[in-house]
Each structure stands twice: as structure tokens, then as C-alpha cells.
Design a protein around this nucleic acid. Structure first.
Lengths: 154, 154
DNA sequence: CAATAGCGTACAAAATAAGTTCTATATTAA
DNA sequence: TTAATATAGAACTTATTTTGTACGCTATTG
């Protein structure tokens, strides 16, 4: 349940690798070799992330991709949505939902709320959280990055 | 992304319907007729939820299912996990993860944290939230049910 | 003992995801 | 200007997951 796709997993792996030299351009071939991932798939993931504004791209010789922003300014919700599409638990939660159910129900509004809860919970987590060699735990992380939001993991 | 399955959607629909008469036994056939959903599928969903302790079952004539607890004591995380399996964003997040990746990475620990964030965010939402004809919004809902947790939807 | 209703397993069809391939276009260096 | 390199975009195949159904079995009631 809520399992992310393999492409998204690759995406995080690629982005954390690129975060190590934020200035230089990394090509799909380079990243594929460094991370032992299939080249065409890496290219596909890079393409998706570039299309959603997470990367800058440069064609031709010595070309490649580069983070468009610092890791601290890239939320994992953006990465997830770039690769897997918009974040919504049901089609009911979408504004233009065309529900096929015969009987009427008030679920759409409820799912919209659930949706928002999940979204607001993870939007504070950014790429640089994944760049830490050992995660410090959520409380410490969120305390440092955003003083407003305070979820409580048990 | 994070879209729940149709079976889970059915599950909520079924549970909210059952919550309307908490004492009586509802059969799969009855629920199927009332909600205009395919009978075998309703039976499957009921079976799953019963197996995870959300329902009491009774065989034979006049048998059927009944909520095992009051709607306020059934978290949507239980419903989700009953139907879609354990809540984890990657297999990395599982304790006995056998990662096939060639290069070593520290992602598992990070995903575990993300996992926990989502889990703790939605665990406070229970079935009776879905039983309200119009949801009041999250802040009001959580304020009434649990004074400790305070996410902030924008 | 017959009718009802859940229990468990297995299976076929449909939808989705993953990975690959091919052609086009842009950039650089010789 | 030309050859090499690298992204852009689309189409396609294969694999996996999800959905929906079917069937034989067991328990309960009247």
C-alpha cells in the first residue's frame, strides 16, 4: 500500500548522486554507469524530472542534466509527482471527478481531506533529507527545516 | 500517485453503510444490493476486513457481518492495510529488505522515516470521519478526536 | 436435512508499470 | 561544415499487479 514505483526509487538515487556535484553536468550515460542502472530507464526518469522543472538540461557534447535548485528546495512531493503523476488517493479527490457509482455518496470531499493530510505531511521533506548519510529521525529534521509543522512519530 | 484501489473504495462505502445499523448483521448479498456493487467483490472485501479484525462474522441463515468496534475506533490505516496490505512506500522500508541494487545506498532508513510520517499523519482519521454527511475540514475533526496531533493543511 | 451464508483457494481478464527502441533535434569540437 | 555526442519525444513490448469471478467446502438456522 502506498508503494512508490521503481522509477521513483531510481529518481531519488539519481538526484542524491547529482547533489554531490551541483555545478557539473551529469549525462544519462554517466549516471547509468555510476549507479548500475539501465541507461534507457535513467534517461526516461531524467526526462520526466526535467519536464517538471527539477532539472536544467543541456544538449550536445559535454551536455547533460543539473539540479535546477538546491537540494533543500526540492520537496519529495515534487519528485513523486514528476514521476508518478499528481498526488491523489482517489479519482474522487480530483476536482473534475466523473464518478461512475450508481448510488450517491459524499466520499469525494472526505478523500480530498485525507489527500491533503498526506500531502502536507510529506511536503516538508526535501531532497537533502535523502542526502544525509544517516537520517537523524524526523523530529530533528523537521525542527531544523520548518518550525511550523510538527507531526509526532511514535 | 498514492491512489488507493477500487476495493478499498468499496470497503469504505461498505463500512459507512454498516455503521448506520451497528447492531444488525448485514450479508454480502444485502450490501451488494443496497450499494449497487458486484456481489462476489463485496464478499471479497468483507472477507479481507473480517480477517483483519474489523468485522465480526456469523455464518448460516440470518448470518452476515457486523462492525467489531465503534466507527470512531476504526482507523483508516487499518482499513487500508486490511485491503491493500501493509503500508510501506518501498520494500526498502521493510525490516527484512533484500535489496537487489548493486551499489550500496542509505535509502532504506530514509524511506522508513517517510513511511512513518504518512502513517502517523492519517492514523488519527477514523471511519466516523467518513460517516459525516459533510466533512468539517481536518483541523476541526482532529481537534475533536485527538488533542495531540496538529497537522496544518494550507 | 435442506437452505443460507461465510471461508478459502484458484483463475481469467483488464489495467498499469517497466523497460526498450527508434527517430529527430540541438550543441560542441575538430 | 561535418562528425560525434547527448537530450527530446513518441511508440511499443513485456511483465506485473489489480480486478472481478467461480467453485467446492464448512458452519448455522429452522
Amino acid at each position: 500500500m502506498f508503494k512508490i514505483g521503481m522509477l521513483t526509487d531510481y529518481g531519488i538515487l539519481i538526484l542524491t548522486h547529482m547533489a554531490k556535484n551541483p555545478q557539473g553536468w551529469s549525462s544519462a550515460a554517466e549516471l547509468s554507469a555510476s549507479l548500475n542502472l539501465p541507461k534507457p530507464t535513467v534517461a526516461k526518469v531524467l526526462k520526466l524530472m526535467n519536464h517538471h522543472g527539477l532539472l536544467d538540461s543541456h544538449r550536445g557534447k559535454q551536455g547533460g542534466y543539473r539540479l535546477s535548485r538546491s537540494p533543500g528546495r526540492i520537496s519529495i512531493t515534487e519528485i513523486l509527482e514528476a514521476i508518478e503523476g499528481p498526488l491523489h488517493v482517489t479519482d474522487c479527490a480530483l476536482p473534475h471527478a466523473s464518478c461512475q457509482r450508481i448510488i450517491q455518496c459524499d466520499l469525494p470531499a472526505h478523500w480530498r481531506v485525507v489527500n491533503e493530510v498526506i500531502h502536507s505531511a510529506i511536503k516538508e521533506i526535501s531532497l537533502d533529507f535523502f542526502c544525509q548519510s544517516k537520517p537523524c529521525g524526523l523530529v530533528g529534521y523537521l525542527a531544523r527545516t520548518s518550525p511550523s509543522s510538527t507531526p509526532n512519530p511514535s
